[in-house]
Amino acid sequence: MILEVLSWALLGGLGLALVAGPLGSLMVWQRLAYFGDTLAHGALLGVAAGLWLELGSGTAVMLTSLALAGLLLLLQRSRALPADTLLGILSHAALALGLVALALTPGARVNMEALLFGDLLTMTPGEVAAIWALATAGLATLRWRWNALVAITVQEDLARVEGVSVATLKTVQRLLLAAVVAIGIKAVGALLITALLIIPAAAARRLARTPEQMAAIASGLAMTAILIGLATSWWLDTPVGPSIVVGATLLFALSLAVRAR
């Protein structure tokens, strides 16, 4: 029984870590850390909306996250505010609005700790299947358009002149990020999901000579962090989500000892 719980947790975590590698690398290169945070904070609003509309919480969080990513893309295109100011407003507004909406929801019994810090150990087989479906589809999409994604990261105008449809590609990447954030909240929580995307990628930087190596190494390190986190949680009885992020941070600290390539 215990072993079964642990193996579903492990399987779900590893699927998430796998897709987090390349997606997190793109986030680091394109400076999207704050974008990810905003999406994650929006999850709270999603949970409240789910209760109001009597939708499943997973579905509601996913829809809110995708809608928020779309809204951000539109607002950024208008350039009325600097990108980080815009994200600062939306990120905290979503968090606050979510908390207020949850308080106003009659009979809401939300496990706030699980929402903010994750609860990998209550992962159901259905949820694990959803993670692997998303991870597989996500990796396939990233692999298919990888060269173009790196090209727009390096020089957007140049890529456009060479025929890359930048707007479409950016939209696809951000929506994929929104979906992974939404589904990853179950594992490490709304406050820590960006960490699982960013920290392994940052740690992989010093070990990699090419963008592809960095993405692959980031996946490997994220999976290692999942193992470290689950093991720590198992033996020391610590909360899983934070333990995973501590594991990732440890790997990052170790990577600093490696001479930059």
């Binding site: 290169w29 390096v154 002149v161 990699a208 090419t210 963008p211 960095m214």
Partner: peptide
């Protein structure tokens, strides 16, 4: 059209060698 932009700023977090940069345009 071949285009040479005014600036190229590659984020230091992106490991990119000259050959890989060219292969962004030609496999």
């Amino acid at each position: 059209v071949g285009y040479m932009p005014q600036k190229l700023v590659v984020d230091p977090t992106l490991p990119l060698a000259v050959g890989r940069f060219l292969r962004l345009a030609e496999r």
